[in-house]
């Protein structure tokens, strides 16, 4: 299939307009395959994406091996986020609310 999403990069542009990712710890809720994650992860100090969808996470983790050492993907649901309190500077609800 020829599907292409946001080739103009509007989403990335507005995300960086709204946030300064430099040296920040980011939590992405509902990261799926990590499409959005890679729009900003390189600028952050740590990025953790989580999602309950195991097959999507497999794709995300495969990309992570090539793209970043400081980006991690976890299997979890937003009903119980498996991280300590006050860990992150920024949380992103990625098309997930």
């Amino acid at each position: 299939m020829s599907l292409q999403k946001d080739p103009e990069g509007f989403e990335k542009r507005i995300l960086h307009k709204f946030l300064d990712f430099k040296d920040k710890r980011i939590l992405e809720v509902g990261c799926g395959e990590g499409r959005l994650t890679w729009q900003y992860a390189a600028a952050s100090s740590l990025t953790v994406g989580f999602d309950p969808d195991h097959s999507a996470l497999r794709v995300a983790r495969a990309d992570a091996r090539d793209k970043s050492r400081d980006t991690y993907f976890a299997s979890a649901s937003a009903s119980h986020i498996p991280f300590s309190k006050e860990t992150f500077d920024i949380a992103i609800l990625a098309w997930s609310l």
Partner: peptide, 28 residues
């Protein structure tokens, strides 16, 4: 996600965010 689940998730996110941390809600 149901309303109650959304509110609970937003509370969980709040717990993991630092004070004055930022939440971005990005959606269609």
């Amino acid at each position: 996600m149901q309303h109650e689940s959304m509110v609970h998730a937003l509370d969980e996110i709040r717990r993991t965010l630092k004070p004055n941390g930022i939440l971005i809600d990005l959606r269609p």
